[in-house]
């Protein structure tokens, strides 16, 4: 296949749209969560201001090379995840840099940011970061198992590793979605999804009340701004994969925005309704409830 250079500006356009959408959507979800607590919540544009302020801080200090690279790895995890997955099905412009085996690469990218963060936070030397990273890695690993099982189940079902082909197989009717053709895999994957969104009941990694904010304890100024940028890109990119694999993909931007918002709302719903799990409880929850479903999904396919 020949590489077309026009794909690069097109992908950057996708990135631009997703960053802005992510900033507004996370603020909107924060507002919804605040309304549940009967507060007004942050203004819808607050994320932009926080970002500008953090980039605009005058001083920043470093703890070493890996401390620099931590946020960079994290951001490249989010951006890479987004860019190697087609965001709009059937659109030449927004299929990004997707290729035949992109499903495996996407699985890798989901984990990449957490590992980069672990290296960076370890360099900062704060004990709170170390605790947060230990919790984060164990929880993400446990959540990744059902996710990987569900993805393999879907790959077996459609007999392909290309996300574009998986989306193509789901077109036509709502009943063609993986949600209806392979419900067990979708349920297992949605459980894993809850675990990786850093919302209650699975937010023990950040846990601002007990270990000051966990892995990013020592991060500030532009480092923190980079990580904030990633925090709006990564969830959207992850939801894009879910939309593509399980919910029929999106054929235009309004459908894309709607589906991403609704899937994100699942974690927000669960988040405002349930208190926090301890890390061993959440791991047990993934292994007992989500993993058997994933295995079953593979067996049934």
């Amino acid at each position: 296949m020949e590489f077309e250079w026009i794909k690069i500006p097109y992908s950057l356009l996708t990135l631009f749209i997703v960053v802005n959408y992510g900033l507004l959507m996370t603020a909107f979800i924060a507002k919804i969560a605040a309304r549940v607590g009967r507060r007004h919540g942050i203004p819808i544009y607050q994320n932009y201001i926080d970002l500008i302020k953090n980039y605009g801080l005058r001083s920043s200090i470093t703890h070493g090379v890996m401390f620099y690279l931590g946020p960079v790895f994290r951001l490249s995890g989010g951006v890479g995840l987004l860019l190697f997955v087609p965001s709009i099905y059937g659109s030449e412009m927004f299929s990004n840099l997707s290729f035949a085996g992109d499903l495996i690469l996407a699985l890798y990218f989901i984990f990449f940011g957490t590992l980069g963060m672990a290296l960076g936070a370890a360099e900062s030397g704060s004990p709170h970061s170390a605790i947060g990273i230990t919790r984060g890695l164990s929880q993400v690993t446990a959540a990744e198992l059902p996710m990987a099982l569900a993805v393999f189940s879907v790959a077996l079902q459609y007999e392909t590793l290309s996300i574009t082909e998986i989306v193509a197989a789901q077109q036509g009717s709502v009943l063609n979605w993986t949600l209806f053709t392979n419900p067990l895999a979708v349920v297992a994957a949605m459980m894993a999804f809850l675990g990786s969104m850093m919302r209650p009941p699975f937010d023990v990694v950040l846990a601002p009340q007990e270990i000051p904010i966990g892995p990013p304890t020592e991060y500030h100024s532009s480092y923190l701004a980079l990580m904030q940028t990633n925090r709006v890109i990564f969830p959207v990119a992850k939801v894009v994969i879910y939309t593509n694999l399980f919910f029929g993909g999106a054929t235009n931007w309004p459908i894309f925005f709607l589906k991403v918002f609704l899937i994100y709302m699942v974690s927000a719903f669960v988040g405002v309704a349930f208190p926090r799990f301890r890390v061993e409880q959440s791991i047990r929850w993934f292994l007992i409830w989500a993993m058997p479903l994933g295995i079953l999904a593979i067996l049934l396919v």
């Binding site: 607590g37 507060r39 942050i42 904010i213 304890t217 020592e218 991060y219 500030h220």
Partner: peptide, 22 residues
């Protein structure tokens, strides 16, 4: 931080670590 006064709507937030606070 509670519904009655809710400083978040004025862009005020609490951070748990001095590195990130102003």
């Amino acid at each position: 931080m509670t519904p009655r006064f809710d400083a978040y709507r004025y862009g005020v937030q609490w951070r748990p670590t001095p590195r990130q606070s102003n």
